Amino acid sequence: MNAADSPTPAITMLRLLGGYQISQALFVAARAGLADQLLDGPIPLAELATATGLRPGPLARIVHALAGEGVFALDAGTGLVRLGPLGRTLASGLPESVRNIALMWMDSHYRAFGELWGTAETGRPAAEIAFGEPLFDWIGQDPARVRAFSAAMTDFARAIRHHSLDAVELDGARTVVDVGGADGTVLAVLAERYPHLRGTVFDLPHVVTAAPEVLRAHGVDDRITTAGGDFFVEVPPADSYLACFILHDWSDEKAGLILGNIHRAADATDARLILVETVLDEGAAPEVASLLDLTMLGVLTGRERTRPEWRDLLAASGFRLDRIRTTPGPMCVIEATRVP
Rank of each mutant, 00 (worst) to 15 (best):
R88Y: 04
G53F: 12
I62R: 11
W138Q: 15
G70Q: 10
R338K: 05
D107N: 11
E96Y: 07
D230R: 02
G184R: 08
S164F: 09
H206T: 02
L321K: 04
R111A: 09
A46V: 13
L34W: 03
G302W: 05
T185C: 02
V28H: 12
G228N: 10
M106G: 00
T175D: 06
E335T: 08
F245Q: 14
N100E: 14
S23E: 15
T50C: 01
L17S: 05
I43K: 09
L94I: 08
L80G: 08
F136P: 00
W250M: 06
V235H: 06
G77T: 12
A25T: 10
D178P: 11
D155F: 00
W250F: 15
I160K: 00
A227W: 07
E121L: 11
A65C: 08
P237Y: 06
A268I: 00
E115C: 12
V233E: 14
A126F: 04
W105N: 08
L280Q: 10
F232R: 06
T12C: 03
R325G: 06
M296G: 09
R223V: 05
D322V: 14
V28M: 04
P308S: 02
G79V: 02
F232Q: 08
R338V: 10
D239M: 08
E335H: 03
G53N: 04
T209Y: 01
T52Q: 04
L14S: 15
Y110L: 02
A173K: 00
R272D: 14
A126T: 10
S92E: 14
F319D: 14
G199T: 08
E96G: 03
